[in-house]
Design a protein around this nucleic acid. Structure first.
Length: 419
DNA sequence: TCTGGGGTCCTAGGACCC
DNA sequence: TCTGGGGTCCTAGGACCC
């Protein structure tokens, strides 16, 4: 394989939501800012670097953040702006090369091997991207460049905030060895602790540990992958298109008892969101999974695989409801539910136009008065109305009642991945 | 007095088939 | 009477990522 140099780039916007707020409101610049949360409740979705200096992190409870940083300013978040500005950044990346893999709202891999003859070597391209994003959009972005995706991603983490790090081919070991293992993609708190218990703290130490030993510590697949990563054996290509393997939605309820009517209302809302997104992408799925979380963060999942794929709101609601009751029934009473989740996997393509003779065989998991075709017709009408008049124009009654959750729907839509 | 919402992949046991 | 080995699918739970 010809050595083309450090041609994989990872571009990652810095403290993205918080940076957007500081861009749009100059009064927030230079100050500790948290998006979401609030001292009363909820979680911090993102923290500015000024807030991070106090130890404030994304995912942290609001009251905890205030304790660390009493002068913290909370903002509600302008989710539409995040999407608009992130898309503008991605357009800048697409100017450099069509080989862009967007992996979340605010980060992407680029393979610039075909762009070096136009723009110059990878370090020049990295600097160009950073300059353009700063000048045209007004946001700080960090870029890492290396021979593999994994290394480029680590390099961008090292480059933060607002920096550029290039790992020249041949210097990989020197770069990796002193870094902490948690910079490896796939090492979270649990695996970091497991490795630390065996005296493994750096990537160099991990690389010197036999793969078989790492597999004993972390399990076969994770251990094997991490060993490969530590040895810089990442062979993944930059992929421009992904197909989702599941579609789901969840809702935190605050503490409440399992009133059948309320559970049904929330499930109907979740099933409606999920099935609408499936239909919008001409997809359906056979496996329905629900998760019920109880007080104390204990959670239970139940799943069922149907003979036929589902994408209709009513059918998904009914299956989800059965599963939730079976999950609650297995739980030691009395139970207080703090979260409900519905997801559909085992996805297949499902054209919008259904064949007329698509009558499923009798299935105890698919009861109800309406036939499959009738249900799809109802969904089709509702989708059309929503497209014209907005998502709230019409809905199934329980779904309409189930509104008023803690998180704005705009945020939910941000987190939805491409199908 | 545990903290949101969207995902991915892996493990392990059981059912079932050849 | 009890025995092999391999494969696939399903279910429940867990770790991790943004």
């Amino acid at each position: 394989m010809p050595d083309l140099g450090a041609t994989i780039l990872h571009a990652d916007l810095d403290a993205f939501y918080a940076s957007v707020e500081q861009l749009l409101d100059p009064a927030l610049r230079g100050r500790p800012v948290a998006v979401g949360g609030g001292p009363g409740g909820g979680v911090v979705l993102a923290a500015s670097y000024e807030a991070k200096a106090f130890g404030v992190q994304g995912g942290m409870a609001g009251w905890q953040a205030v304790r660390l940083c009493p002068r913290l300013t909370f903002v509600r978040g302008r989710f539409g702006e995040y999407q608009r500005l992130a898309d503008a950044v991605m357009a800048v990346l697409a100017d450099v090369t069509p080989v862009v893999e967007r992996i979340s709202i605010d980060e992407a891999f680029l393979d610039v091997s075909g762009a070096v003859h136009l723009f110059g070597p990878p370090d020049v391209i990295g600097a160009l991207i950073r300059r353009r994003v700063r000048a045209e959009i007004g946001l700080p972005i960090s870029v890492g460049a290396a021979r593999t995706k994994h290394l480029a991603k680590i390099a961008s983490q090292v480059a933060k905030p607002d920096g550029l790090v290039v790992v020249p081919p041949g210097s990989e070991r020197q770069f990796l060895d002193p870094l902490p293992v948690e910079l490896i993609w796939g090492v979270g708190p649990v695996n970091r602790r497991r490795l630390a218990e065996r005296g493994i703290h750096t990537i160099g130490e991990l690389a010197r540990t036999p793969s078989s030993a790492v597999e004993r510590i972390l399990g076969q697949a994770v251990g094997h992958k991490l060993s490969a990563m530590a040895h810089d054996e990442d062979l993944r290509r930059v992929e421009t298109a992904h197909r989702a393997r599941s579609v789901g939605a969840q809702s935190a309820l605050g503490r409440r008892s399992a009133e059948p009517a309320e559970v049904r209302a929330v499930l109907a809302h979740l099933a409606d969101r999920v099935s609408r997104r499936l239909r919008a992408k001409d997809r359906a799925g056979r496996t329905v999974t629900v998760r019920v979380r109880f007080t104390g963060m204990r959670s239970v999942t139940r799943s069922h695989t149907l003979a036929q794929p589902v994408a209709t709101t009513l059918t998904l609601t009914e299956v989800a409801e059965r599963l939730v009751w079976s999950a609650i029934g297995d739980a030691p009473a009395p139970c207080e539910i703090t979260l409900l989740a519905v997801s559909v996997s085992n996805l297949t393509a499902q054209p919008v136009i259904q064949p007329e003779l698509d009558l499923p065989p009798p299935d105890p998991w698919r009861p109800g008065s309406a036939t499959g075709a009738a249900r799809r017709a109802v969904d089709g009408s509702m989708d059309a109305i929503r497209t014209r008049f907005g998502a709230d124009a019409v809905g199934y009654l329980p779904a309409v009642m189930g509104r008023g959750t803690a998180v704005p729907d705009e945020f939910r839509e941000l987190a939805e991945h491409e199908l």
